[in-house]
Structures are given as C-alpha cells and as structure tokens.
Computed example of a mutant assay.
Amino acid sequence: MGNNDIRNIYCIGRNYRLHALELGNAVPTSPMVFTKPTHALIPMEGNVVELPSNVGEVHFELEIVLRIGRDYVPGIKADDIISGMTLGLDLTLRDVQSKIKAKGEPWLPAKGFKGSAPLGAWFEYLGQDALEQQTFTLIRSGQEAQRGQAADMIFDVAALIEFIGTHYGLGAGDIIYTGTPAGVAALADGDTLEAYWGDQKFGSCVVKL
C-alpha cells in the first residue's frame, strides 16, 4: 500500500507515561485518540520537509505506525488485522497546542497542518512479542533525541485496535500512530531527522522552517 491509499490517520496521545509527564499532562485511563487529515502525509525519503515558522515551536514526536489490512471485527487479533508497520513523526505546533488546550478547543490546528505526518518506509509487521522487544530511535542531526520500546506503551497494540475499531471503525487503508516516548523537543531549521528500528533506518528528512 502506498501513502496515496491511506484512508484514516488515527493518532494516540499520551501513550507513554514519561512523555505525558514531561508535558505536565495526566496519564490517561483510556486511549486518547485524535486524527490527522491525509494531506498531513509526507514521505521520509531524505527529502526536505517545510514546516510553519511563524506560529511558535514545532516539536518532533517519533512513533511506531501500524497499517491496517482488513476491516475490524470484534475479537480479531492484532496479527490478523495489521498488514505492515513503519516509523513516523507526529509533528506538533506546541505553542498552538498549549493555547487551544487552555481553551478546550480541538487539536487540529496543532496536529493536522500539511506536512505534519512524515512516514518512513513500510515493512513487515513483526508481531507483538518482537514489537515490544525492539527499540526505535530518532537521531537528530547526529545525536540521539528519542528512544522507545512498545513494551512501555500504556495501551498496547491490541488494546488500541479494539478501542479504535469499537468506537470509530477501523478498516483496510487506515493507519495508527501509536504514541511517542519521552524526549520531544523543538526543531530547528536545518535539522536532519533519522528514524531507526533497531539498527535499520526506515526514514529520514531535513527540516526547513
């Protein structure tokens, strides 16, 4: 499936305890789901990603992204519905988000702007055990910025699929950004971002602000 075939982009907020705490947020008791428009998608193929430069800080958030290959039915196993995975960035206008959170307004202006969902190359879903054992890493201009493991998720992959499928629907062509570990920070013009699954690089881009 190419990125042009993606239908819905579901994203999970605050799914790693330390990330929730680093932003001063309460740890959720059920999955916090928001969406991005498909216009937010952009490949991570060594290309330049142009981001807004006049609305405050733009933060990086590296995440495991799951591709859904068939329609959800109650009780379906994650291995039977997930058809691939990759790493992606949930880019966030943090100053904008802080303002709209204070007003209780939707997150779309902070999370859904064009280019806010860079995606790496798709690869085979490895199953829950392998998923939780491997480390994923964001390298920012040669320095490690984030490191995480799916084992640290508050809500695991199976729980996310059940929750999204039950409440919103989930089908072939949908993708799920599963949440980011701690270590998020503001991007600077010219930053190079590289996404690694173990020692394999599955995406990179250069930031232009």
Rank of each mutant, 00 (worst) to 15 (best):
I6D: 00
H167M: 02
T192E: 12
I164F: 01
Y177L: 15
K103I: 01
D80K: 06
E144R: 06
V207E: 00
G127L: 04
V184A: 15
D79S: 11
L160S: 04
I12F: 02
P28M: 06
N15L: 11
A185W: 00
L23Y: 09
V65K: 00
T166E: 14
A185T: 02
I6R: 05
G203E: 02
G198W: 02
N54Q: 15
P118A: 05
V27W: 02
I64Q: 06
G56T: 13
F136M: 08
D191S: 13
T137I: 11
K101N: 10
L108R: 04
T29L: 11
E162W: 05
A20E: 03
V73N: 02
L193T: 11
K111M: 10
F113N: 07
I76F: 05
G112E: 13
P109T: 04
A26M: 04
F163H: 15
A150L: 04
Q143M: 04
E132L: 05
M44P: 00
F202V: 12
P43F: 08
A172R: 09
P181Y: 15
G171Y: 06
L193R: 05
A121C: 04
T29G: 05
G24E: 06
Y125L: 12
F155P: 06
D129E: 15
G46D: 13
E162A: 14
W122I: 14
S116Y: 08
T166W: 03
